[in-house]
Each structure stands twice: as C-alpha cells, then as structure tokens.
Design a protein around this nucleic acid. Sequence first.
DNA 1: TTGAAAGCGCTAACAA
DNA 2: TTGTTAGCGCTTTCAA
Lengths: 334, 334
Amino acid sequence: MATIKDVARVAGVSTATVSRVVHNGGQVGDACRARVKKVIAELGYRPNTNARALVSKKSDTLGVVTPRLSMTFFGTLAAGVENAARENSYKLLMSNSLYETETELEAIESLREHSCNAIILHSEYSDEKTLQELARQVPGLVLINRFLPSMANRCVWLDNVAGGKKITEYLIERGHKQFAVVTSVYQNNDPQSRLTGVKEALKNAGLKMPANNIVESTANMRGGEEAVQELLKRGAKFTAVVAYNDLMAVGAMNALQDAGIRVPEDVSVVGFDDLYITRACRPKLTTMSYPIEEMANYAAKLAIDLSTNPSNVQNRTHLFMPELIERNSVADIS
Amino acid sequence: MATIKDVARVAGVSTATVSRVVHNGGQVGDACRARVKKVIAELGYRPNTNARALVSKKSDTLGVVTPRLSMTFFGTLAAGVENAARENSYKLLMSNSLYETETELEAIESLREHSCNAIILHSEYSDEKTLQELARQVPGLVLINRFLPSMANRCVWLDNVAGGKKITEYLIERGHKQFAVVTSVYQNNDPQSRLTGVKEALKNAGLKMPANNIVESTANMRGGEEAVQELLKRGAKFTAVVAYNDLMAVGAMNALQDAGIRVPEDVSVVGFDDLYITRACRPKLTTMSYPIEEMANYAAKLAIDLSTNPSNVQNRTHLFMPELIERNSVADIS
DNA sequence: TTGAAAGCGCTAACAA
DNA sequence: TTGTTAGCGCTTTCAA
C-alpha cells in the first residue's frame, strides 16, 4: 500500500502538503493540489487509519456495545448506528456485553484503546456511579434505552410508561374491562415502566385488575405461553392480555389458541416492540412501535457530535415516543 | 491514559522491557517482571491499539462485511463471528454492503486501512476476478455463503442442493406426489441450488412437476403470499409447497389459510433457514436448518488462522450441511 | 503557499 | 536479561 511518503515523492512535494490536500485544507496552491490529487489517484493511496488515530487521538470510529447482536432488536439497533456511521464516514466497532457488567466494562475499555471516542452503550446492569464516571472521561458516550437522571442529556430512551398507557387506553376504548398482564423479570426497568403505564390507564378509567391477573415470566415466546397457561390455571377472567413484548404476546396467543380460545374473538392480545414477527403470526399482532433503528441513528449522531464538540451537550434529554400499530389481534367488545 | 513510557519510568526500566512483559515474552527477569506488572496495574495502563497496529501492521481486528445487519440472518452471522473474535481477543469491525458492489469494495478497502487482515465477506455481487485479486492481497479473507471454485479453500458455505433434495425426499416419504415450488429472484445462487435439489429428488422418485407449479417472487413474506395467490389463480394442483426460505413459507401459509385451505391438512408447507419465526407461525414450520452462527464462527476462526499463518491454507473447501427440522406444517397423506 | 522536523505510542533488531 | 535506537505513517507547529 502506498504511503504518504510515496505520494510526496512522486508528486515532488512534502508530506505536509499531501496531508493538507487529503484534508482539503485551504492552504495549497491550485496547481500543486491538482498534481497531488492526480498522484493519489494513480497510486491508489489511502491514509493509514492507525497512524492517523495515533497522532490525532481520534479514530473516526463509532463503538457500539449491546448485550447480544444475534437478537433482532440489537441487530436493528446496530443497523441504525451503522447508517449514521456511514453518513459521517465513521467505521463501526461492535462488542457484545452478554448481559454482564464485566464484559460490558471490558468492551468499553477496549473501545477506548482504539481511540474510539464516540460510543453507544446499551447497558442494563452497570451501576449509575460507574457510568457517570465513564461519561465524564468519554464525552462522546451516549446511553441508549436507559434513563439515568444524573446524566439525562446523554440518554436516548423510550417512554415506556406512555407506551403501556396508550395501548391500554386503546383496549379500553374498544370496550375491554377485564385485563391480564403478562410481564417479565427482565433485567432493566422496562417491564416495570410499561406495567406502570397500564395501571395508570386502568385507574383513569376506573377499572380494577386483580393481582391474580398479573403473571411474570421470561421475556420470550416460551415465557408468554407459560404465563397464559398459568393465568388459565388460576381461572383468571379477562378479555384482553397486555404482554410485555411481542415475543411474549405471540407465545400468549399460541397458548390461548391451544386452549381453544380464539384470538381476538374471545380474547384480545397486544404486544410491544413491533418486531417483524408481528406480521408473521396469526392474527397479526397489534402492538406499540419501538423505533429503535431511528433512535440508534439519533444516538449515533449525538455521540459523534459530542465527541467532536463536547460543549454541545445541551441541558435536555432525548426521549422517543412509541406509537400504536393496529393490526388484527384486538376485537371490539361492546 | 498512561503510556508505555509512564510505566517504564515508574518501574525504572526501559519501554522495551515493558513491552516484553505485556507480551509475555519470556526474556524478562522474575523480579523485574513482577515490578512492571505491579506498575501496570497501578497506573491502569493499557497499550494503545493504534500505535501497536501501526508498527506491527496488524490490528487484532476482525472485519465483517454483510449486506444488512438489521436482518436477523446477518445479525446471527455477526454474532457467530463476534464469538470467535472475543475468544481470540479480537475486536469486530462491521460494515453493511447494502447489496452493492461498490459499497462492498469500499468497505473492504476501509477495513484494510485499519490493518484489519482477517475479513469475513458475505458477498453476493462482486465478480470472481475481483474477489480472487482481493484474496491474493488479503490472506485472511474468507468468503461466507458463496462458493467460488477458483478459491474453494477460502469459502465457507452451505450445501443448498443437498438441502433442497433432503426436504423434498422427506415430503415424498410422507406420500406427497404433487409439488409446487415458491422460489425467488434473489441475487445469489441459493434459490437455483435449492431448486436443483428439489428437482433431483423428484426425478429420483419418478415424479413430475409441471413448470406451471413453479412461481418466482421476492424472498420475503409478501413474496410468499403473492406466489401462492398466483399458484391458486393458475389452478395449479399440489399437496405440498416447497418455499425458498422461511419468510416465503410463512407468507405462503398465510395466503393458503386466507384462501380457506388448511395447513397442513390440505396442503403441507416447508421452508429453509430455521429462523426464529418458524416457531412463531401457526402451524410451526418444518424447515431445513441453516447453521449460520456456527458457520460464521468457523469462518472467523479460519480467517484469523489464515491471517496469522497464510501457509495454513489447505487444499479443501469448508462445506456445511443443512438438517431437517421437523415441526407441524407437514401432513402424511397415504 | 510550502517544507522541515518533531513526535504520537509502540515494537523489534541490535548491542551490551 | 535488559537497554538503546530506529522507525511505523501520519499531523502539525514553526519557519521560510
């Protein structure tokens, strides 16, 4: 691979001039610039990223840490980041944290060794103190899907409470009065927040939900199935089930149907996230959107901005709203 | 961040010694080694990756180029690579090629600028010549999901012909005689290969399939639906439909059911890939596994090995076999 | 407008 | 066993 020296030699200029041309620095004569550009093209010269990062202490690289890339949700997140990265000619450095604080911290350290100073972190575990300290050291660190009041302006997150509330109100409008909730023991606050939203909506409408009608399980299809089986075993009465996410909702629908209960004729089911799967199941699932790709894109731009220009931190947080996606898993009962 | 010089100064040794300790090079006295290690820990020293890459011309970074990270399939691929990367203390550099040759080539160039000499490439478009030349220049380049005879030993791929054949034989064993195929106009050879397998199995069993019973469409759910609608419009007769992939199969099932045709009682449906979705749809889909995570893991190890030790290229290719996954979308008709 | 030169943090040949 | 030294390819200040 041609180096800057090769270009300088062939073009008969100094390496400093080549560097200026590469960076579109204004201070180069037209003739000279043209000549250098020509040589660059001829030699197929491309600057060595590592050398550049070494001296400039930044690498035009965006680091992303998520729990597990193989999960659709995080793949989509990564895609959103990738998009923003490409638009800004940044590269993408990825790590899985595997839901472990230690791996997560290690990943971030390793990112820093790469002079990667724009970082998107989907952290579930690490405590607030650690994160605050990290944020202080890395101005381009942005948290996604988590809200920490002490660093609100570095958080890009979704209003889960509003989401839970909205979809419950939708169900109430359609005449539902007896609810069941299939929630999860997930590591972060999301299940709790969504449940809070559900309860708020119920309360506002003067509706009661027996504690018996809330079941906790793992946040996947199997968990949704088991939760409904438990509900049925308990003899709970309900015409609508609000699931923590789409995966659990699909599991719930399957368990319902297996028990000879029709969806949505007998019982309506709603999810949350709007994964691809919502269009594959039958009936198609009514759910709340989680614009994670858009959010990730936004977070990436924010991270790049902050890493370039730390003083741009504004005194505000970055909150996204989920939206209702109507499909066929909810029936009117009037 | 502490540098190697800081460590050397505090420990009262030269930077060369520190470097040796960091690399576990044997040639250091025990006392000296212990002292240096202590200082490293105290200072929280971590070697700068860029400086290291600059001088050693390698970066302990694994590059991955796939069409689009947000698609489950590629997310899973990336996860397999990530796993191998972590095990070898490699970092992961990701790029989307967006199904475009130019972006793909650009991504690879950019990877090389990073001194990233182990590369996993899922390429659909780039022509053989280009790829061959690339492979010559980058000993650690491995192709995944594509077979190029001229560089067979650098290809990690799946036997799609065998897959198509196997699942068709399974259907034949269950008494099916009238087949329909929902295939795709996908950019690579996979649809063609799978179709070849289907035809082989049919031929071996002395079965005929009218040309009318093969419909081509896009490789997603919508495509599967449309294909079945077309089949129905043509008045094609069949008891089994073999879809190019799971997405099309789910679409096919939906279209069938919408038309009042029961799956699998009236018509059996099979897919390919074994995506998560196969467990969400009703009935659960019988399909062929595509062990992409395992393959990606293997490919990553191969790439790392070859980049470290180019002479390890063996005169063989790396072929994986799909396996039948029995679920509930196929009925016996006897 | 252009060039000379120092140095980013590290590795590795060579010397001691 | 340990240190000295010369770069790796690039940016950037300072001087011309």
